[in-house]
Nucleic acid binder design. Structure first.
Lengths: 357, 357
DNA sequence: CCGTATTTGTTCGTATGTATT
DNA sequence: CAATACATACGAACAAATACG
């Protein structure tokens, strides 16, 4: 919003009465001064008074009755809504995050408007368009394909213009200096790899998603750990895949790994889903985890403990991240220019899928 | 609204342009006549013109830009929203149902307002209150504690008064003759039990939830099958529990079953979650499934195949039910007095948790 | 019930300011 | 810079609804 040199008189009048109503100096149902009285008090024309009051009428603060006067409206609790844009709805850790968000929002009186991008940029655009149409108080958004170019940057800027606060979860776009709540994915990749190294592994493969920031960062952590222990980086045993190719490529890559002359003794997986695909591929080849090959993964989702082999994995805050995101966005709505940024530390959960070599 | 003798000029002007916009004679983004031109055309003062246009501005039909002109607003297509009230968000089959709903709604241009009752009646009331506040086009609702008295009946009637269509999924309240999409739970309980009988079992225990209709119906099916094969009903081996007590009671009940003199050879479970609790209790006692006791369950959720013992279970349509519910509610919005009711047939998925005796 | 005062609603006229082209 | 378009502001008049003696 542009700053204006002088505030128009009618706006001053509107603000004056708005303040009186909000401070309850004028209570719901109570009658306001008549237009003529206001005219005299503010030394303005009646037209100007009417202009100011009509603004308050539109905003629902007051109502008028011909012949009677102008009255303060009964407190109208507005229906506060917060939009949530996630990449998926039903899979994996997202339901938990959404539940955490819902829990905090509903107890704070907010409603939750849910959108899903299916991790596609053009669906993200559609979601943002709809969010802008709805009169939401705030937005919690998980970026879609966060490692790729943010083609929808314009929409995020429009949110800022419209004074709609938003917070990003799990990842954030590089170009945007937005509020965010993420976890330390570099650290996570690092402690997983370091753990394997400390178990004696040296030939450690990795497989990472490369179209979101989480994948990039977890891989960075993996490389950082190897470097720290002077283990050469072998790009042939580092797999990468995009969201669309997940199941096929991770399977293929794992099988290729297993057929190598110097078969890796351990595998760092981007997340539990990939770990399960790898696990299935390994079983298909007649090998066992962790006896023949160790696996570590990421997120501590339900499937990490659903299989016979309980996965050693990095904990993802899930519900707690959702709750915190909701708390942050409510704070951002209430305070101006508050832009929180929080990063959860990575924590290793040791289970049965990796062992000493 | 009182009927007025003469329509004010400014209202006539507003109606004139409103009609032009709605008939698309003035298209979105297009510029309107200037205030001065309207002044001449209608032979009124400029003030009157401004009064009329400001009405349209408030209603969102137009926007003005100082120095440029008055323009038809882009988004006058109203934002269609459908509310979804579920009992849970993150657990079990609900994420899939929600995804199915979202898929259809978003491709039809609707937004999804999500509410969660946590299976508590007073939260269901809060949700319904919020739904009534929002200007939603329709509601998809999974009844909370559907076997108990519908204390929130008044809110459902208010929906009808307000012409907001709603459809119930998974269950419906007896008293309300509402649109619904359910599955044949009686049939489901029946085929599970019949399957066990055909495997040679005669001493078949059951455990059912008793605060939702699904539980009542699945138990009816269980009893129907036993009766059909002239197997006496033994209430001592039929467990019941309410939502709140699920984990504790199902565990306790299973252990009591196992310690009986004539230990049941099979157990019909209300759903996969209960089956897993039972499975854990059985393992705790050092017994095996299906060697020592057969288990069948219901819903075919992820956890049915996550455990080592893949559960024989009845398929729940999940995503498909969600999609169909969304299609139905859209139909109901478009057609008056359309009240669909659909019931999915039960289908048995035979896996490894039950065997011949 | 009438009449008058009060209050908001509608309409006109005029002037000046500010943003855009 | 000028022309155009919307924004702000003042003043005045009459209409319609309401309140009250």
């Amino acid at each position: 919003m542009k700053q204006q040199g002088v505030t128009p008189k009618y706006i001053k009048i509107a603000e004056h009465f708005k303040a009186l109503i909000e401070s309850e100096d004028i209570k719901p149902g109570e009658q306001l001064m008549s237009e003529n009285e206001i005219t005299e008090k503010f030394k303005v024309s009646r037209h100007t008074v009417r202009q100011g009051l009509s603004q308050l009428e539109t905003q629902g603060y007051i109502y008028k009755e011909q012949g009677k006067g102008t009255f303060c409206n009964k407190y109208k609790e507005d229906i506060k809504t917060i939009a949530v844009i996630t990449t998926y709805i039903s899979n994996y850790i997202f339901p938990s995050i959404i539940r955490g968000i819902e829990e905090v929002l509903s107890s704070a009186g907010y409603s939750l408007l849910l959108f899903n991008t299916n991790n596609e940029k053009n669906k993200e655009r559609e979601c943002l368009e709809k969010v802008l149409l709805h009169n939401v108080s705030g937005l919690i958004v998980e970026p879609t394909l966060s490692a790729l170019k943010n083609v929808n940057e314009g929409y995020y800027k429009e949110l800022v213009n419209k004074d709609i606060p938003y917070i990003m979860i799990n990842a954030k776009y590089d170009q945007l200096n937005s509020a965010s709540i993420t976890m330390d994915d570099v650290e996570g990749g690092y402690i997983l790899t370091k753990y394997l190294i400390q178990l004696g592994h040296r030939n450690i493969a990795g497989i990472f998603k490369n179209d979101d920031i989480q994948g990039i960062n977890r891989k960075l952590g993996y490389i950082k750990a190897l470097s720290e222990f002077n283990i050469p980086i072998d790009n042939d045993i580092i797999g990468k895949y995009t969201t669309k190719e997940e199941k096929y490529l991770t399977n293929e890559f794992t099988k290729k790994l297993l057929s190598r002359k110097k078969r890796p003794t351990a595998l760092v997986c981007y997340n539990d889903q990939v770990a399960i695909h790898a696990l299935n591929a390994i079983r298909d080849e007649g090998l066992r985890v962790p006896e023949d090959i160790s696996i570590v993964s990421y997120d501590d989702s339900d499937i990490a403990v659903a299989s016979e082999v309980k996965l050693t994995t990095v904990r993802h805050p899930k519900d707690e991240m959702g709750r915190q995101a909701a708390r942050f966005i409510i704070d951002m709505i209430e305070k101006q220019d508050y832009k929180p940024s929080y990063m959860y530390k990575a924590e290793l959960l040791v289970r049965d899928s990796a062992k000493y070599i």
